[in-house]
Amino acid sequence: MRHIISMLMENESGALSRVAGLFSARGYNIQELTVAPTEDQTVSRLTLVTEGDEQQIEQIVKHLNRLIDVVKVVDLTNGEHIERELLLIKLMATGAHREELKRLADIFRAQIVDVSATTYTVQLVGDKSKTDAFINALDASLILETVRSGALGIMRGEKRLQI
């Protein structure tokens, strides 16, 4: 099953490689990964998506907790949560395609954020199923470049990941 695991880690050099190294050393797979600063300058928020059965995920969380630089870990999949991904996609947009791509972007509530004589760059925010659906709806021959942020996640309601 697909799990979104989110953690706060110390802003120390090498912290990210400890997490990545753990996954490669123990044969777990990271499908998506994002890291960025938080309101607290001493920590970064790392979110990753991995696949595994219940026992594997339990081991992953335990091993992550064992890393000294990892302050807090949560498996977002265990509870109600919001998942979002940012997609930036550059499309060949000439002739009749220009109008058609604009309509398709509107249907998905995507925005065209950059335009050239022959291209559109489209931005779309949503969970994985939405970004997947948009990409699948496009004529594959028009896709010039795809950039996806990987999943971000946050718990619903008053629950939060904090130190």
Partner: peptide, 11 residues
């Protein structure tokens, strides 16, 4: 002492 040792190989 190590939670990661528990249920690693044997449930």
């Amino acid at each position: 002492i190590d939670p990661a040792s528990i249920s690693k190989n044997v449930k």
